[in-house]
Design a protein around this nucleic acid. Structure first.
Lengths: 195, 195, 195, 195
DNA sequence: AATGAATGAGCGTTCATTCAT
DNA sequence: TATGAATGAACGCTCATTCAT
């Protein structure tokens, strides 16, 4: 079944081309014509691959949420100390700032357009994505504490959100360094207590 | 003599009525007819008070960003220990979860529709708002470290963002408690070192 | 009944203020708000004096068509020769070019918005105006030939129409001089024949 | 392969269908829905062929101004005497009265909506049209005098304008006959003098 | 007499979507 | 498979008009 493979592959290629468009304008302000033009196809072809604007957007979100987080994490892992890891994290955020901001725009947009019913149905995508992030965070931190992982994820999300909102004073490296110090202090204290 | 109404006051009343609508649907997906209906006026009246959809949205953001943060902070201040303060923060977040989520939706939406030129012009609103938050955070934490204030703000924003994205596993109180512990450990360590 | 006199007088003053507006934009493109603003009154006041936009326009046309043509003709009469009279006519047209062009715009606009039924009803205005023009033309030319009067009127209207359409090559004085020569030649020939 | 239609050809066909509409109501009072209905297409299709109401109107004017005047002149030429020619002209005007009146309505309307800046840009259309008319008039009269050509054109325009304004007393044949006599007298006199 | 806030139908235009080719 | 012409509902917005003050 080579056709189907091609079809599906082409579909994903098309999707990747409209990520920026949704990130910059938001679901409600992007038109199917703009998407088609960005993809380099006609509107007819667009509808040949996606049944509706909504379906296209959902598939886009599914696609980007399935992007392998482990590959990215590989770049961050293998640091000897927490301090080094945090510096690496900060630099990583700086390097991919634009992408993370776009990703956040699309993600928030998607959440906004999910009414509660659909949220149940779609939650599998969300949950799987979230689990991957949590696992990656645990692996990265070298701990198994889910709450701690959530803490770090929230903090990182928050940093990006601040940047996205135009706060140019925030410094990813500085903030991650601070996180490193706090984590170190916290973990030391805990281990001391536990000992 | 015409009907006496406080034009400006009425404008703000109208604005407050469409906050939820923008939060739920997003700028691009809300129609002026929906807004008018939600406000209980005709579209003509809507345009009597707001020159365009864009102007209306900008005024909405300006309005909600000017809401006095100090009033909210009063509820949180006056805690003896960091631990107590963090528990209070967690409970506060839980209590106002819906509002903060809506606020975040609107804020992100607004950022998305600002092109870089306008961002400079609008930045005063952003900057003033951000400064208020930073000051409040410093006051709340009882420290003057701007970086630490940014850290806490980012974390809180991140928590709300997680919730907004449908992560129901996150627990505001639990997370804030963890933040309290980490802050305590970090500050103790620092004071020890400085001593 | 002084009130009524004032009312009517004020109404005519208001009308005179919107002549230019209708001439420049045309009936369909002028808004009642623009008219009110041009008049320096509120829309409410506007409707106090005119029952509708249509009524206002009709009254405007009636007003300008009743403007005493004899006063204007006084400026042109009393010329010894046809040649002198035609030179005076040409200069008169040059001097009042803008006004005649506006007048033509409004008049054509009015004719366009008269459906055939109303035309019968309104024709009295038209007919009376036209009779005045014909009489004036006869008096001006010093003849009683209605066809000749129509000829001259048509020609003058045509000159203004050409100018209105942007033909800057046309020269009123030159054209009127030519008209004078042709009339002279024609009248001489006729009198010769008749003798 | 898409539906094959000659886009440009179809555009012109559509244009021809809305000439009467603009002539009867005027630019400002015609709606795009009315135009679409008259053309037998949807509003969406209308905008597929014309980017805006203004663009549509401009193209309409360009189209009708490019209609070959020479074809019409062929019907008038070849008369032995000026007198015959003028009788033919009068009959021609009577026969095409409706068309000329509509044409005048549209043309005046167009001039009204041209602001001075655009007039410069559009003047090429006007100037070319006017030149064609002048040439035709010269050819028709059998003379090369531009001023005389303008005279006749103005007169004819004036006749139509009078008719358009509802003056039913005017008689095209009678007037043109008079024009013939005047021209004859004038030209005879001139040739006599020149001899 | 005078105001301008209020209305909602209707404006020019765009939209997601369909379908003959 | 791929196209883009076609649709008509719905968009943001404006309009002539009304009416409480």
């Amino acid at each position: 079944m080579p056709k189907i493979v091609d079809h599906d592959q082409y579909r994903k290629e098309l999707l990747s081309k409209c990520f920026d468009l949704f990130a910059q304008k938001g679901y409600g302000s992007v038109t199917m014509r703009q998407i088609a033009q960005e993809m380099g196809v006609s509107t007819g072809t667009l509808y040949h691959y996606f049944s509706s604007k909504e379906a296209l957007f959902e598939q886009l979100v599914e696609e980007i949420s399935q992007q392998d987080v482990s590959a990215a994490l590989a770049e961050l892992e293998g640091k000897e100390t927490l301090s080094e890891a945090m510096t690496a994290l900060g630099k990583y955020l700086v390097k991919n700032e634009d992408y993370f901001i776009k990703w956040t725009f699309v993600w928030v947009d998607f959440c906004q357009h999910q009414d509660s019913e659909k949220l149940r149905h779609q939650s599998s995508v969300f949950k799987r994505a979230n689990q991957r992030y949590q696992q990656a965070a645990c692996s990265f931190l070298g701990v198994q504490d889910q709450v701690l992982a959530s803490f770090v994820l929230s903090f990182v999300n928050g940093l990006i959100l601040e940047k996205l909102c135009g706060d140019e004073t925030i410094d990813f490296v500085e903030q991650c360094t601070l996180l490193g110090k706090m984590l170190t202090a916290y973990l030391q204290q805990n281990s001391t207590i536990q000992n």
